[in-house]
């Protein structure tokens, strides 16, 4: 399993590396950010995108050839960034997520997952001159409670029903690439794309959706999931106009 974990990590770094190559030319989006080094800024942000796609499906998304339905999903994510040096930042993220996974033809009829997660890391501005392209790496710790309603059909003697509750704890890394768009001197729009790697150190069972990581059907202790989202950040010590 360690070899698999390492291999997947190498693969993700490889993928992120290939993304860096595509982003050097996007610098014209916020030229006025060049003067940001005059004051060390820190920003608070909130995720404004992850719940949107589900609302288009009335929060009921069919998956796995309609054998599974993802419903009642909700995510709250708060982020914080603090500038350390001219081109590097400390970052932190706190999140809460819940989802219901309904599988009418499976033994796991309904699974209710709720979880908290914390991510800490560092990011670096990449590209020449303009500094709105960021490459980051966060370490993460997660807690996830999976409550599963089980039903084993019993046509002769009666169905067996039970509720299985599993508490999962995991650790992982979250390499990401972000593009920052300055909306004005206080507000910043961030487009972030990441590839989360997560290893469960306590708990058991399949987790089709894991809070803080994402949708990961068919994976067990080690899960990997890509994702992209938008965040709105507010600068508390914004840059000074030049």
């Amino acid at each position: 399993m360690q070899s698999t974990f390492l291999s997947a990590f190498v693969l993700s770094v490889f993928l992120v590396g290939s993304v860096i190559g595509q982003t050097v030319t996007v610098d014209s989006l916020s030229e006025n950010r060049a003067g940001s080094v005059s004051g060390k800024e820190h920003t608070f942000g909130i995720d404004v995108f992850k719940n949107i796609p589900y609302l288009f499906f009335a929060n009921k998304v069919p998956l796995d050839e309609r054998r599974m339905l993802l419903t009642n999903r909700g995510i709250v994510e708060l982020t914080w960034r603090r500038q350390k040096r001219e081109r590097s930042y400390q970052t932190a993220l706190l999140g809460y997520s819940q989802v219901e996974v309904v599988s009418p033809k499976s033994v796991e009829r309904r699974q209710n997952a709720t979880g908290f997660y914390a991510k800490l890391g560092k990011e670096w501005s990449v590209g020449k001159g303009k500094a709105q392209s960021q490459l980051g790496l966060r370490a993460m710790m997660t807690y996830c409670r999976y409550s599963t309603e089980l039903l084993y059909p019993g046509p002769t003697f009666g169905d067996y029903k039970s509720l299985d509750v599993v508490h999962n704890i995991g650790i992982g890394i979250d390499p990401y690439y972000a593009l920052d768009f300055s909306l004005n001197q206080q507000w910043l729009l961030r487009w972030e794309t990441r590839l989360a790697h997560h290893y469960r150190i306590a708990g058991k069972g399949y987790t089709p959706y894991y809070p803080g990581v994402g949708f990961s059907p068919g994976l067990y202790n080690y899960i990997i999931s890509p994702g992209t989202t938008l965040q709105i950040h507010y600068r508390f010590h914004g840059r000074k106009a030049e």
């Binding site: 070899s3 698999t4 291999s7 059909p153």
Partner: peptide, 25 residues
């Protein structure tokens, strides 16, 4: 990396040959 893919492939074969018993009575 190659070894990792090999493990995943081997695990896939092992899983496909495992009888999980009845999912009912």
């Amino acid at each position: 990396l190659v070894r990792g893919f090999f493990y995943i492939f081997t695990a896939g074969i092992a899983v496909s040959c495992y009888d999980c018993g009845p999912q009912a009575e």
